[in-house]
Amino acid sequence: MPQYNVSEPDITLTSEPDGTRLIPLHSVRPIIEVADTTLRSDITCKSAIYAQHSIPEYWVVDVNGG
């Protein structure tokens, strides 16, 4: 992930125990964004970043579109 601009998804499922540091990418399964006003950014910018870093599954929940 970008070193100084780490994304903060709404929900991240991981196999790592609770902690105070960044989640290791190898432990991430789905990343879920709940989009209200951020839909465009979530499906363009964020999806490209996650794909570049081989995140295996990325969901965007469009709360306005149902």
Rank of each mutant, 00 (worst) to 15 (best):
58 Y>D: 06
63 V>D: 00
49 I>R: 01
63 V>E: 10
54 S>V: 04
55 I>V: 15
20 T>S: 15
27 S>I: 03
36 D>C: 09
6 V>W: 04
66 G>L: 07
34 V>P: 06
1 M>L: 12
10 D>M: 04
14 T>G: 07
52 Q>M: 10
65 G>A: 15
51 A>Q: 14
17 P>Y: 05
13 L>F: 15
64 N>D: 13
57 E>C: 10
49 I>M: 05
64 N>P: 00
64 N>E: 13
32 I>N: 05
25 L>S: 12
14 T>S: 15
30 P>E: 13
14 T>V: 06
50 Y>I: 04
62 D>V: 00
40 R>Y: 08
52 Q>I: 01
65 G>Y: 02
53 H>K: 10
32 I>E: 03
9 P>V: 00
38 T>Y: 02
39 L>H: 06
46 K>T: 02
12 T>E: 07
15 S>M: 07
31 I>G: 01
38 T>H: 00
54 S>C: 12
13 L>K: 11
49 I>K: 04
42 D>Q: 08
23 I>G: 04
60 V>H: 08
2 P>H: 10
3 Q>C: 06
29 R>D: 14
16 E>L: 01
17 P>N: 09
28 V>P: 01
5 N>T: 00
38 T>L: 00
17 P>T: 08
18 D>N: 13
43 I>M: 05
25 L>M: 14
39 L>I: 08
10 D>I: 02
57 E>K: 10
62 D>R: 01
24 P>R: 14
37 T>H: 09
